[in-house]
Structures are given as C-alpha cells and as structure tokens.
Amino acid sequence: MKETLLEIEGLKTHFITKKGTGRVVDGIDLTVYKGETLGIVGESGCGKSMTSLSILQLVPEPGKIVAGSIKLNGDDLVTKTEKQMQAIRGNHISMIFQEPMTSLNPVITVGEQIAETIRAHQPISRKEARIKSIEMLRLVGIPSPEERAKQEPYQLSGGMRQRVVIAMALACNPELLIADEPTTALDVTIQSQIIKLMKDLQKELNMAVLFITHDLGVVAESCDRVAVMYAGEIVEKSTTEELFRKPKHPYTKGLLDSIPKINEVQEELTPMKGSIPSPFTEHSGCKFADRCPLATDICFEQHPSLVAYENDSYQVRCFHYNESTSGKDVGHAKQS
C-alpha cells in the first residue's frame, strides 16, 4: 500500500485586490505518496506555481490561502507559524526553481552556500558542513567537487548551477522536493542530464518529487502520476501512462494536439481556440467551456466536479468526458 506523504484538500489561494478576487488556486485536492514523482502540468497562469508556493506558505502579497488544508504526514501546514514553517522548509520540503542564478548568491562560493544551508537546519560544525557540501556536489555529479566548491556561481555553466541548486535542496534529506520548471531554462541536452540526475537521486534518497512543468514531454519522461491544471483547478488526474495513452479531458487533448509531433508529418496543427481566462473572471459553469469543442448548455450553467472513475485510477472534471473518449470506459462514477 502506498503511504501518503502530502495531502492537499480543498486548497484555495486567492488574490484579493481592488479589481476583485483573483481565484488563482481554486479548490485543489492532491495527494503525494512517499517516493513517487507527481507532475503538475498546465500553461502559464493555471496556478501550478502558486500551488507549490502555497505548500511552503510562501504565497506573495496580496495572495492568501483562504480555504483548505495541506497535511504533511498528517500535520496541517496552513496553521503553522512562520517559525514552525522555517523548520519544515529545507528539512522536510525543499524547492528548486527555473532559473538557478536567482536562487544563488552571486558573491559567495557555492560550497559556502551549501554549507550555510546545512548549518541553518542541522547542528553541525563548520568543518563538517564543508565536508558535507563537497559530498553533496559529488552526489549531483559535479566533477572535481573540491575545486568547484571554491568557485562562485558565475564561474559555472547553467547546467552546473542547476546541479548546485539541487545539491543545496537535497542537503538536508527532504522527504519532498518541489521542482518548479527545473529544466525549462536549460538546453535540451543539459535538460536530459538533469532529468536523469533527479531520477537517480530520487531513488537513492527515497524522496517524493512534485514536478511542476508546462512541458508534456518532460512529464512523460519523469513522472509516475500527473495532474493537469486549468484556470486554478485540476481538470484531470491519472497515471502518466493512462494520461498519454488516453487523455480524457478536452483540455488535455487540446494541449497534446497543439504540440508539433516530432515523429509524424503534419500539414497543420490543431490549436485550441481562444486563450486562458483571467483569474478574475467569474464562471458559473465549466471554466473551459468557451474554448471547448464539446461544450453544451449544461457546461455554461453548471460547474462540473472532479469525478473518479474505475476505482479511482483516474479523475476527470468534464460533463462530456465519455463523449470525448468515444463512448467507451463507462466507469462506475462516484463523486469525489
């Protein structure tokens, strides 16, 4: 049986401004099991990054978690004080970002930066921290780590910097690593090196990874399960295999159809019409309805809920889901 590590229930992160309420994250349920990689995929503005910042209680002003709970090993993070959260960040949950240079101090050597992180969380001496930092650099595959530890970030290439950031994030053996577009700024050949590294480290350290990305290719390569987000909601959730074998939600299908295929010849792409709605827009029905090829009256009137099919093996938020999969797979629907 899979053990639950992180459980998010009914999470709503709203931005309350003079213009109105921006529903950036609008009711998310998500479970991360120990040792797995869960992908969150969606286009810009779908709320995927804000979900991860909510987990760490780092939502920027004027954003606020207005409802829901985020339980790490059964312990609700939403109610924690800032001081308690500091003990959790880095020790239990770490995060890496897209642009490594913004997470590194440009005028401190990388070895010192990693050692500093370790000492912030663990009661060890400077010397021990320094040894540990070199060990971490070796772990993430940096050649001659003793030399590299003495260098400053500008002396490293983009791929190396991302390795340093990963070393820093993993220095205190977190149970969960949140990776927010960790390979987006990298060239493809470096990207495939970093993805491989993250997979190896995950096995070695037995941690769970929450992988946030816009790239469905990266998802196929690195995730066990996937949640597809659209306008602050999860529209589809299933195993990676199921998602690519048979995408269910019209948005997921639209996304997949929009990508030029490397292994076939296409005269024209099939894009979705329109663009994503602003989080300030009020919806009474399905948020995807006005871009959806299957939308009918009910889609504009009622808001569909995320329904689980086939013993919970996948969940879809769509009234017409059965039509979009050509009428097969009528599961015993239950309200989730």
Binding site: D187, T189, Q191, L216, E221, E241, F244, R245, I262, N263
Partner: peptide, 21 residues
C-alpha cells in the same frame, strides 16, 4: 534523442552526451 516526447509509448535510443558546451 534528448527531446522529451509527450508519449509514453515511444522508446528511443538515447545517445548520452556528457558535459557542457
């Protein structure tokens, strides 16, 4: 071979190139 393909059924021969430019 480094391009991630959004399809779990496509298996490809990966040529690993190490190091940086």
């Amino acid at each position: 071979s480094a391009i991630p393909i959004p399809d779990v059924n496509v298996k490809r021969t990966q040529i690993d190139i190490t190091g940086d430019v």
